[in-house]
Computed example of a mutant assay.
Amino acid sequence: MSGRCLAVPLLVLAGMLPHAAAHAAAADTLDLAKQVNAQIVHRHMREDFDAFARTFSGSTMMPDTLPAGCQAQMRVAVSGMYAAMVRHMQAGIDDPVFQRDLDTRLAAAYSRDELQDFLGRSATTSLESLSADVLSAPGLKEAQEAQQQKIIDSMDEHSTANPDLAAAMQAVGAADTACEQLQMDAAE
């Protein structure tokens, strides 16, 4: 094969190398961003959520003045609502579309070295502090807050975003109405 015949494929290959290297670097940065999200940001959100979810108990959030005839029905309804709220919030935090968006935003906001630094600091820095540092880049905290607001906004008995949660909230409303009727009947 002549030198000229080899030169053309080598030139083509040489022209593709910078593009391939840039693509590999971007993929590497995205992989690091996914690790930062999973090990720091998402983990912190999950830990906060888990602490919040532990406070949900059907018995702790019921008024002491609830008549005895209402307590069982109300306890079942409220417990069901709390369970549905916890599932709804967990699904919102774990939402794959949100997680992929956050991965992409992290990869765009930080260099490969910065992402590696975050991962390296995870052994010596509190998760809360490290997550705040990660989310300090423009648009990241706002994206997280927008997701949290989306979760809260869809916690409504008339929402179509989560029919199970809406039904559980309606059950609490029905139990409350039945309890009020019981109280009015007892007062007569």
Score class of each variant (00 low, 15 high):
Arg54Ala: 12
Ser136Leu: 02
Ala7Asp: 12
Leu130Lys: 08
Arg43Asp: 04
Pro67Cys: 04
Asp164Leu: 13
Asn37Gly: 05
Asp185Pro: 02
Ser79Trp: 08
Val76Ala: 15
Thr177Phe: 13
Leu6Asp: 09
Gln181Leu: 10
Tyr110Asp: 05
Ala77Gln: 07
Leu102Thr: 03
Ser126Pro: 09
Cys179Trp: 02
Gln181Thr: 14
Ala107Val: 01
Arg4Trp: 14
Ala108Asp: 13
Ala84Lys: 02
Asp50His: 01
Met61Asn: 11
Ala7Ile: 08
Ala109Gln: 00
Ala132Asn: 04
Ala7Arg: 14
Lys34Gln: 14
Phe56His: 08
His19Tyr: 14
Ser129Glu: 08
Met81Ser: 12
Asn37Tyr: 08
Ser79Phe: 03
Ala20Pro: 04
Pro63Trp: 03
Pro138Arg: 07
Asp103His: 05
Met62Gly: 03
Leu140Cys: 06
Leu182Pro: 07
Leu127Pro: 05
Thr55Ile: 05
Leu17Thr: 11
Asp133Cys: 04
Val76Lys: 14
Cys5Ala: 13
Asp117Ala: 08
Ser2Arg: 08
Ala7Val: 06
Arg87Ala: 15
Asp117Glu: 11
Cys179Ala: 04
Ala107His: 04
Met155Ser: 09
Asp95Ala: 07
Ala132Leu: 05
Leu102Gln: 03
Ala77Trp: 03
Ser122Cys: 08
Met85Lys: 15
Ser79Ala: 14
Ala171Asn: 15
Asp28Lys: 10
Asp185Trp: 07
